Amino acid sequence: MPDNNVYNNLQSAACRGSALLLLAATISPLAVAQGGAGDERIREAQPSQSVKDVLREEHALFSRRLTIEPGISYSYSDRSELGLSGFLALDAIFLGNISVDNVESHTTTFDLTARYGITDRLEVQLAIPYVYRNSRYETGGAGGNPDAPVDATVEQGRLGDVSAGVYYRVLPEAEVRPDVVWNLSVRAPTGKHPYDIRTTTIDRGDGELENLTVPKDLPSGNGVWGVSTGLSFLKTVDPAIIFANVGYTHNIERSFDDISSGEEAVPGDVNLGDTISLGFGTAFALNQRFSLSMSLSHQHSFETKITSGGREQEVIGSGANAASVNFGATYGLTDSTSIVTNVGVGMTDDAPDFTLDFRVPFQM
């Protein structure tokens, strides 16, 4: 009987051990598979530094971290106007005086932008610019003498218009749809407005007034409150990223004590024309830290209307169409600091001839 009990106990232990081994063999592959899938999801949630740079500059990053982005941008524009005083003979020969007016504008903007991702779908932004402008005015044929050109330079630097905005992810990117972000921003008239700037006429020094009139000061802002809204779209097509945006800016009408460039103050209301903007482009992440981009941007501004003395009138020539082609590059120095450069070439007369942007965003 003892031998039979020992044998039965050994047989029961062997059965229990086999069951445990079978259960372990069944559970282990499932646990390994779940752990592998979790690691893969973590890897997919961490895009490369070059992709992050493209998202931050062209869309929104939603990183849940504070990003500080100091930057400097420079733009140059050159406009020439030909003034004719006379008549055309035989449809080919002009008889009279010719005056050539040329304006060269150099604008340098130092700005500090702060972004913070509150959630993975909500981000806020604040931008503070400082604008330095240098404009050179030149005219030929002054006083009827084409050999006596007159020129003058005006420069000024001061705070620009401060803006604040919010970005909200409406739809996350999926296999068949892009990532869609809605934005809303407000621009405050903290800069110098252009509606009461006095002008002066250049005197050559011999008592003869010339035909060159220049402003005594230069503006650094629009002078009115502005509200902007729009949508941006982004789709990843490895190794490229395709993006597009559309926006609308409404400028709120404002009253001023003086809107004249003369010595006498003239009060009035300024209804700055609204603006429609759109753009699209693509970026290529060449490796983990370096990317290249190219895009086209267009902005159409409607005419400005001024009300003075109870009568509203449209400012002739105040509407504008500005289109430019942009080429950019980003390089990630570290996981939290990057260098962003962009070069723009104007395609229309209302766009700057040349723009250059240089930014160094870093996350804290």
Rank of each mutant, 00 (worst) to 15 (best):
S260E: 08
V170T: 06
I306D: 06
S324Q: 12
F290T: 08
S261F: 11
W182Q: 08
P352I: 01
G223M: 03
E69M: 13
F290D: 04
S301V: 00
N251V: 01
R289Y: 06
G344Q: 03
Q299D: 10
R177H: 15
S308P: 08
R177C: 10
T337Q: 05
D257F: 03
L212Y: 05
A283W: 05
P70R: 08
P267N: 02
T355I: 01
V343M: 11
W182V: 10
D179N: 15
L21G: 08
A320N: 06
S85P: 00
A152Y: 06
M1Q: 10
H193W: 10
V54R: 00
A25Y: 05
E208C: 07
Y248R: 06
I202R: 01
H59P: 00
T26K: 08
F362T: 07
V180E: 02
G141I: 01
E123S: 14
V315F: 04
D206F: 14
A14T: 13
V270S: 02
S105W: 03
E312A: 14
G17K: 11
G165S: 07
G157F: 04
A285W: 05
I118C: 09
Q299A: 15
G309T: 06
V315D: 02
L55W: 10
N5R: 14
S261C: 02
A37T: 06
P352Q: 03
A329M: 09
A127R: 12
L212A: 07
D101S: 14
S255C: 07
L231T: 09
S336G: 01
V345F: 05
R204L: 13
A33G: 11
E69A: 12
E57C: 00
N145D: 15
T337L: 09
L95Q: 10
R136T: 15
G141R: 03
T282S: 14
E175N: 11
A240K: 04
T330L: 08
G332D: 03
P267Y: 04
V54N: 07
S135M: 12
D238I: 12
A322F: 04
D258K: 00
I259H: 01
A14Y: 14
V124R: 00
S80D: 09
N9D: 15
D274A: 09
P146S: 01
I241Y: 12
S308G: 04
P219C: 04
A13W: 15
T139E: 01
Y7D: 11
D238F: 13
D3S: 12
M364L: 15
R115A: 11
V186D: 00
S336C: 00
T139R: 14
R65F: 09
S220N: 01
P178D: 10
V131N: 04
I242H: 09
V360S: 01
N9F: 15
D269T: 07
T108Y: 12
G230R: 07
V340C: 05
T307Q: 13
P172G: 15
V270W: 04
M294H: 10
L122H: 12
Q34G: 09
Y76H: 11
